[in-house]
Write a protein that binds this DNA or RNA. Structure first.
Lengths: 338, 338
DNA sequence: TGTATCTCTGTGAACGTTCCCAGAAGACCG
DNA sequence: CGGTCTTCTGGGAACGTTCACAGAGATACA
C-alpha cells in the first residue's frame, strides 16, 4: 500500500542531547520546564532543539505517563441531525471550554456506521483518551458498554435508560414538556395535539410523557403523530397529518423547534393564522425560535451548560471524586407563537 | 491534584502470555490476526484475553509502529457558525466516510481560543495523527504553519491565500457567484445589490468579486453591504440597510443561504413580494434553501464531496502520491425566489 | 537418508519518553 | 575542617508493544 514514504526520521530527545552536549535527562527537564537546570544548560538545549527541529513524541510520553490528557466526545447522531440540531454545536463548545481550561484536549469522534462504532470503541479502549463524554446515546449503545467495561471515566449528556450506570448531565424533559403544554392550554385551547419525535431516545419519550400528563383527561391519542427524527420535515408532514385528522385543531406542542418551524410553515400554507387560529410551542430555544414569524414560544434548554457540566463530571472522576448526576433547569421562553 | 486515583493496572500482553502459558510473540500474533499460529494456541490466547481482561495499549503500539492511523480534522470557526452553517456537518461526514473505509479514525479538534490553537498544534505535532484536514483556515493560520513545519500530510477544504502550499479541495466561488448573479440579471432586474459576508475568508472575497464581475458597468458600491459572518442576522440587517439606501432595489445576491433567509424575512416584513418585487438568490444550497417560502434559488456546493476529497488528498500523501488540488463543480439550483 | 520447505514458537532489541537514584560541586554553618 | 543542604547532571530502568531472527518439529521429496 504505502509506496515511497520518505518522511525523514524525526529528531529525538537524544539527538537534542548530543547537539547540546548534555544528557537526555537534562533535555527532558528543559522541555518540561522543571527546576534544577542551569541557565546555561537551558539555553544550550533550546538552541539544540531549534537546530535539530525537535518536537516531542506524544506516544512515547503517553506510554510512560500512562495518560493522554485528552477527552473523547462521542457524537452518535443520524446524518440529518448533525446539520439541523444546533444543540450539538453548543454542547461541543461548552465541553471544550471546560476541558481547555483544565488543559485537556477535546477530541470529537463521530459515529456514522457500525464500522465506526467498533473503531471508536477501540480508540477509547486503547488509552488514547483519559475520559469520555457521550452525547445522544441510546439504549444498548455499544460505546457506552465498552466504556463501562474498561472503567473509563465518562459522563452522558442526557440520560438514556438501559445504559450503564454512569453520571450524566441532563434536563427534565418530562417536567418541561408538562409545563409548556400547561401554559399552552392556559391560552384557552380546546383541541391540542403533539408532533412527537425520536421516541427511541429518552428525550423523545419524556417529552411525550410530559404532554400526556399535562393533557390529563383531554388527552386524545388521535392527536399525536410520531416521527423518527427532530427535523423540519417531520414538522411539515406531521402538521399536515394533524390537520387532516382534526381540522379544528387549535394548539400544537412540537417536540423540538425544528419540528415547530416545519409545523408553522404547514399551518401558514394551509391558511391558518398563528397564533390566532392555532397556538404552537416548541422545545430547545435554538436559533430556529427567533427565526420563525411569529417567534416561537419554547423551552430554553442550556445546551452549552449540558456540555460543560458533563465535562466537569469527567474531570471530577479523573480526580478521584464521585461525579454525581446533575439535572439542569429549563425555562419557558414565551413569545408570539402561542 | 489527583487524589485517590485507584484505577487498577491494566493487563498487558505479558499477563495474557503468562495466563495462556505461551509467549508474548504468540499473543501479539493472535491479537493482530497474523497467520502461523496454531488453532490450539489461538484458543488459549483468546481465553486468556477474556480472563485477564486485556485490551491493547495504543500508545505503545503507535510508538513502535510510528503511526497512529488517525487523521485530525481541524475546525476553526467562530462560535455562531458551528450552529448555523450546515456545511460543516456535511464536510465532516464526507471526510469520515472516506477515512472510515480506509480504516483511519477521524478525530475532530475544534479551535475556539488561542489556548486551543496552541494545544491543537501540539497535538498534531506530537504524532497523535498521521495527517490533517483543515477547514476554514484563514491567512496566517498558526495551525497551517505548524502542519507545514513538520511536514504532516494535510489538505485544506477551501483555498485560503497566505497559507502554506498544501493541496486543497475547493469550489470556484468567484465563477459560481458570477454565474448566479448573471442569471438573476437575466430576469430583468435593474437595481441589484449584494449582502457580502466573511470578507476575511477567500470564499467571502471571491463571492463579492464574482458579483462585481457579473454586474460590470451596473456595479454600484452603494448597493453592497458587508457583514463579518454568514448568518441569518446578517441577512436581516443587511436587507433592511439596503432598502434604506435604495427603496427601488429589485434584486439581491446574498453571500449564503442563511443570509438570504434573513434577507427574505426582512423583505417580507417590509411588504415586498418575493420574487415579484425583489428577486433574491443565495449560495450553498443548504437546508435553508428548501425551508424558505418561496424556496431559494441558490448555488449548490457539494459540501460532502469537499470533505471526502480533502480526505482523499491526505490519504494520497500517506501513500507517497502527490495530492494535487481539486476544484469541484457547482451547479445553480433555480427555484422560486428569483 | 539427507535436505529443503513449511509451520509454529520464543526472545532480544527497539520505539522515545519520564522517573528515580547516585553523585559531583558548591554554599553554608557549627 | 567536617558535615549538611542545595543545585545540577548523567544514566539505568521501565512503560507495552512490534519486529526480526533463530530454531524446533513436521512434512515432502529426491
Amino acid at each position: 500500500m504505502s509506496l515511497t514514504r520518505t518522511r525523514a526520521r524525526r529528531a529525538t530527545i537524544n539527538d537534542v542531547a548530543r547537539a547540546a552536549g548534555l544528557s537526555r535527562g537534562t533535555v527532558s527537564r528543559v522541555v518540561n520546564g522543571e527546576k534544577y537546570v542551569s541557565e546555561e544548560a537551558r539555553q544550550a538545549v533550546e538552541e539544540a532543539i531549534a537546530q535539530v527541529g525537535y518536537v516531542r513524541n506524544s506516544a512515547a510520553r503517553n506510554l510512560v505517563k500512562q495518560e493522554s490528557r485528552a477527552i473523547g466526545l462521542i457524537i452518535h447522531e443520524p446524518h440529518s441531525l448533525l446539520f439541523e440540531d444546533p444543540n450539538i454545536g453548543s454542547i461541543l463548545l461548552g465541553a471544550n471550554e471546560v476541558l481547555s481550561k483544565a488543559d485537556y484536549q477535546l477530541v470529537s469522534l463521530i459515529i456514522d456506521s457500525d464500522r465506526d462504532s467498533r473503531r471508536v470503541a477501540d480508540y477509547l479502549r486503547g488509552g488514547l483518551v483519559d475520559g469520555a463524554v457521550i452525547i445522544s446515546a441510546r439504549a444498548s449503545d455499544p460505546i457506552a458498554a465498552a466504556v463501562a467495561e474498561i472503567g473509563l471515566p465518562a459522563a452522558f449528556v442526557g440520560h438514556p435508560d438501559g445504559t450503564p450506570d454512569l453520571p450524566y448531565a441532563a434536563i427534565n424533559n418530562e417536567e418541561a414538556a408538562r409545563n409548556i403544554t400547561g401554559r399552552l392550554l392556559g391560552t384557552g385551547r380546546q383541541r391540542v395535539g403533539m408532533i412527537a419525535s425520536a421516541l427511541d431516545r429518552d428525550s423523545g419519550q419524556d417529552r411525550l410523557a410530559g404532554f400526556r400528563a399535562a393533557m390529563g383527561g383531554k388527552f386524545d391519542p388521535a392527536l399525536v403523530v410520531e416521527y423518527p427524527l427532530y427535523t423540519y420535515a417531520a414538522g411539515l408532514e406531521g402538521m399536515q397529518e394533524l390537520l387532516r385528522r382534526e381540522p379544528a385543531i387549535d394548539g400544537v406542542f412540537a417536540a423540538s423547534d425544528a419540528v415547530a418551524a416545519g409545523a408553522m410553515t404547514a399551518l401558514q400554507e394551509a391558511g391558518r393564522r398563528v397564533p390566532e387560529d392555532v397556538g404552537i410551542v416548541g422545545f430547545d430555544d435554538s436559533s430556529w425560535a427567533l427565526r420563525c414569524r411569529p417567534q416561537l414560544s419554547t423551552v430554553r434548554q442550556p445546551a452549552d451548560l449540558l456540555g460543560s457540566t458533563a465535562a466537569e463530571l469527567v474531570l471530577a472522576q479523573l480526580n478521584g471524586l464521585p461525579g454525581t448526576p446533575r439535572v439542569l433547569d429549563t425555562t419557558i421562553m414565551w413569545r408570539g407563537s402561542a
